[in-house]
Design a protein around this nucleic acid. Structure first.
Lengths: 338, 338
DNA sequence: CTGAAAGCGCTTACAG
DNA sequence: CTGAAAGCGCTTACAG
């Protein structure tokens, strides 16, 4: 493997000049630069990031910390971040806090501090004060997606707002018997989505003067199976059956639609269902949802992190934009039909 | 940030001894080791991987190259690999060749050669000879999952065998009109799953003396929506309608089940459907499938890579085990019922 | 078992 | 614009 010295010899310049020509840091005459680039190309020179990092303190590597990659939302965020980082010439080191009891601790305590990172992007992570202090001690730019980290740049959608919007959509159609399926307890710790989305639902209900029946605020895993089970329970008793369900995630919503079909209920005639996400599966089910482009969130976090590394101010871009996608799973409730 | 010298001073030994005590390479007396560990702990010492890598040539970092993370299979493989790597104290650098035209090339040409990797795991990647040569030039252990890289350790399921098994299951139930939905063309380039799975299907059909109608071998995106569309087309003409479909992926199979329901066909009474994967969604749909544990494949690849790095021989473990999961989406065809 | 010293392959003031 | 030299923070023969 040729090193910078080989390139220098080949181009008839010093290693320092090669470094400057290749990195763009420092002035180099056009003709010298050309010679250096040609020599590097010819020899197939590839820089050693370790040496470069050690000498410069910059690593060209960004850490992405998330609670799992199996779930749709995380995978999409990761995809968006990976794409943006590769475009910018950065490596992506993946830290999965979710799988395994000690992993979360070892990620936060050790991995992140090994000085191999220029910046950190966290996804849907709620940190304890101690964990946050550890992260900050690294003194690198941090951008949080989803989970607001106090005092940190954040990419986040208006959870309460879109939840109220989704609930309001059902209300405006004439529904009064509206249930909600949110995230389960284990999810609360990190994701904290459940809480905020439920808040939006409850606010919209209250504002409309509606009171959910007991049991209408359920929780489920963020999965089709989770939604299926929760909706089955929710729809089991005909006397207190809701006419609409606002689900905190599209996968839950799909599960709810399947549960309804399973019980012989028609969607949307007998039951309206709305989700949040913009999951690819939504189209097949005609799912009305609020699309939140997780890929876009990942890319936005990368942009913010790159700006912070250049010491550019990151304007507080407010909430990440979402899109209301109306399909066929929501409609006027049956009893109001002509 | 304290360095190795600080620890050395604190423990009253040389930096060399600290290095040996902390890394385990080289002999250190028990009492010295204890003092060093105590000093490191007290100072909150965290090693600089860059410096360590530069000096030793080992990076404690494994690269994982895959064509995307959005698809279920990849996300699960990644999850399994990430978990196993963190357990072993390794970082995981993610390379996504899939998103963006130039990404594949830049990953293979540049990123992988930056000497920041101890080993590489590729997932479902079919490389050109040139790309393979580039990869090999890095001279690090390589383990391929799914996509067989000539001359490389590989984790792979018996694609042809399980496809024949799935098709055979339908045949043994009495089906003769069996269609197949495989992966689309764009998938072929990297995944090459479609091809081998179709081969298994065709072989089983031939062995049973069955000839598929024209149009019964369809292809789709590996997604619910893709399967839905392909199955809709497949089931459109009642005169040549199959009584069973073998789908190359569970997501396709779920799409097929939804398409059947949409057309008023009952599963399994009017149509049997079988998939491959073991997708979490399968249970809700009662999907019969062949489960292939992608997390397990990711973990197995990590185990192989770790062994190779220790210069241990990696036994050719044959095919990665799969599990036949019979649920309610497959049954004796309607016309044979009592 | 331990230490002094060279070296890993770059980057960057510093001087010209 | 360019080069010589020091240094980034470790590891590892080498010598004792």
């Amino acid at each position: 493997m040729p090193g910078i010295k080989d390139v220098a010899a080949h181009a008839g310049v010093s290693a320092a000049t090669v470094s400057r020509a290749l990195s763009g840091n420092g002035a180099v005459s056009a003709s010298t630069r050309r010679r250096v680039l040609a020599a590097a190309e010819e020899l197939g020179f590839v820089i050693s990031y370790n040496a470069s990092s050690l000498a410069s303190g910059r690593t060209r590597n960004v850490g992405v910390v998330l609670p799992g990659v199996g779930r749709w939302y995380f995978a999409k965020v990761l995809e968006g971040a990976a794409s943006a980082l590769i475009e910018a010439g950065y490596d992506l080191t993946l830290y999965n806090t979710g799988d395994g009891p000690g992993h979360r601790e070892s990620v936060l305590k050790e991995m992140l501090r090994r000085k191999r990172l220029d910046a950190v992007i966290t996804v849907a992570l709620r940190l304890t004060d101690e964990e946050l202090a550890q992260l900050r001690a690294v003194d690198k730019p941090i951008v949080a997606i989803g989970g607001p980290l106090p005092g940190t740049a954040a990419i986040r959608v208006d959870e309460v707002g879109i939840s109220a919007l989704a609930t309001g959509h059902l209300i405006s159609l004439g529904h009064t018997r509206i249930a909600h399926i949110g995230g389960g307890e284990e999810l609360e710790r990190d994701f904290q989505l459940g809480g905020t989305r439920r808040t939006g639902y409850e606010g919209a209900m209250r504002d409309a003067g509606l009171t959910p029946e007991p049991g209408w605020v359920a929780s489920a895993e963020f999965s089709v199976a989770g939604g299926f089970r929760a909706a089955k329970a929710l729809l089991a008793r005909p006397d207190v059956r809701p006419t609409a369900i606002f689900c905190a995630a599209d996968e839950i919503a799909v599960g709810a639609i399947l549960a309804a079909r399973d019980l012989g209920l028609r969607v949307p005639e007998d039951l309206s269902v709305i989700g949040i996400d913009g999951h690819d599966m939504g189209e097949v089910f005609g799912l009305t949802t609020i699309s939140q482009s997780p890929e876009g969130q990942g890319a936005a976090a990368v942009a913010a992190v790159l700006a912070l590394m250049r010491n550019e101010p990151v304007d507080d871009f407010g909430f990440f934009p979402t899109e209301f996608v109306v399909r066929s799973s929501t409609a006027v409730p049956g009893r109001l039909r002509a």
